[in-house]
Amino acid sequence: MTDTSQRTRPLRVLAAMSGGVDSAVAAARAAEAGHDVTGVHLALSANPQSFRTGARGCCTIEDSRDARRAADVIGIPFYVWDLADRFREDVVEDFVAEYQAGRTPNPCLRCNEKIKFAALLDKALALGFDAVCTGHYAKVLVREDGTRELHRASDLAKDQSYVLGVLDDRQLAHALFPLGDTVTTKDEIRAEAERRGLAVAKKPDSHDICFIADGDTQGFLAKRLGKAEGDIVDESGNRLGTHEGAYGFTIGQRKGLRIGTPAPDGKPRYVLDISPVTNTVTVGPADALDVTALTAVRPRWCGTAPAGPGTYTAQLRAHGEETEVTAELVDGHLEVTFAEPVRGVAPGQAIVLYDGTRVVGSATIASTVRVTAGAV
């Protein structure tokens, strides 16, 4: 198999430049490889702030200026495209609706699926570009029959294939990830940026959720959904306290419960269930979070869908570890059984299946089966 980051035929490439160091180096590498590269910064906020808050957030006016300066140094054309309305509808509103329904979404996956490799890619193809280039750490390999596979990055410590697990065949055919094939540390990427004269070499990484610049997810949701006082109860239904909105909690959460009454065994309690219908949050011991199986919906395959049941490894969080599973597609749903119980699995999260380093596909968790509490 060959790595598409090392394509021999020059391509017309649209490089998505966030204003950070990874996307700048990716664009520079694509240009150095001989591709005809154009940089584009996505304006995703209708009211961008002039400056980010510390290392949080992205897509600000400051970021667009950093991206433009990087494009100037690389020597490529540069544009700013306004996708704020599409981003609000497909990512932000989806994020709020999922929390309101008691689920825990991953907006980065939704952004890759709906914005970078849908809205952006569609526009790029319409303008005659061959591929969209990003600074993600992942690899696209081409098999002898011409089909493409998404694989983990060579540097597993920086691998971002989990958030790309929503990409299908068509999207992979037009994806370029120049950072995925090299085993380099972030310090080495920054050193490369500095050698190239890119001012973003020492710029802090953005983290958390890009459209919540201050990192206060609960405050962000409260502004949009309003306060709605409800009960916090134990597994027997005993009232332990109150909250100001069930949407502010996620399965497995320990901090911020504000329960005055200690547990009988003196051990910490965790969020076990969130009921948006009754606006109730149920808490209990850590071992009540152990999950043995789950059902996931809206599967997306990075290639041909599996023909029958199979054994894979699964990743449940962007920076989570792999765990062995058996999985089967049943009536359009993905039924997954874990070899060993896992903890803190929340509906709304994505499960991404792997065969070695190859990404098989992903799906959205709809329900789980627990060791002690049955289906949730």
Rank of each mutant, 00 (worst) to 15 (best):
Met1Thr: 13
Arg12Asp: 15
Arg12Trp: 04
Leu14Ile: 04
Ala15Tyr: 00
Ala28Leu: 03
Arg29Val: 03
Glu32Thr: 13
Asp36Gln: 10
Thr38Lys: 03
His41Gln: 06
Gln49His: 13
Thr53Val: 14
Ala55Phe: 06
Arg56Lys: 12
Ile61Met: 10
Asp66Cys: 12
Ile74Trp: 00
Val80Asn: 07
Asp82Trp: 09
Leu83Val: 14
Phe87Glu: 02
Val92Phe: 06
Glu93Cys: 07
Tyr99Asp: 02
Ala101Ile: 05
Arg103Val: 03
Thr104Glu: 11
Asn106Trp: 02
Cys111Asp: 10
Ala119Thr: 14
Leu120Arg: 02
Ala126Glu: 15
Val132Phe: 01
Glu149Phe: 01
Leu150Gly: 01
His151Met: 07
Ala157Gly: 11
Lys158Ala: 14
Asp159Glu: 12
Gln160Asp: 11
Leu164Gly: 01
Leu164Cys: 09
Val166His: 00
Val166Asp: 01
Leu167Glu: 05
Gln171Thr: 11
Ala173Trp: 02
Leu179Ala: 08
Asp181Phe: 10
Gly197Ala: 14
Ala199Tyr: 00
Asp208Trp: 08
Ile209Gly: 03
Cys210Asp: 12
Asp214Met: 07
Phe220Arg: 03
Ala222Phe: 02
Gly226Met: 12
Ile232Met: 11
Val233Pro: 00
Ser236Glu: 14
Asn238Asp: 15
His243Val: 12
His243Glu: 11
Glu244Gly: 15
Gly245Glu: 03
Ala246Gly: 06
Tyr247Ile: 04
Gly248Tyr: 00
Gly248Lys: 11
Phe249Gln: 04
Lys255Glu: 15
Gly256Lys: 07
Arg258Lys: 14
Ile259His: 04
Gly260Lys: 11
Thr261Ala: 15
Asp265Trp: 09
Pro268Gln: 07
Asp273Val: 01
Ile274Gly: 03
Pro276Thr: 11
Thr278His: 12
Gly284Pro: 07
Asp287Trp: 08
Leu289Ser: 05
Val297Pro: 01
Pro299Cys: 10
Arg300Tyr: 02
Gly303Met: 03
Ala307Arg: 11
Gly308Thr: 13
Thr311Ile: 12
Leu316Glu: 01
Arg317Phe: 06
Glu321Val: 10
Thr323Asn: 05
Thr323Ile: 06
Glu324Pro: 13
His333Glu: 15
Val336Ala: 05
Val345Arg: 00
Val345His: 01
Pro347Trp: 01
Ala350Gln: 06
Val352Phe: 04
Tyr354Val: 01
Gly356Trp: 07
Arg358Ala: 14
Val360Met: 03
Gly361Asp: 02
Ser362Leu: 05
Ile365Trp: 03
Thr368Gln: 08
Thr368Asp: 10
Val369Thr: 14
Ala373Gly: 07
Ala375Arg: 14
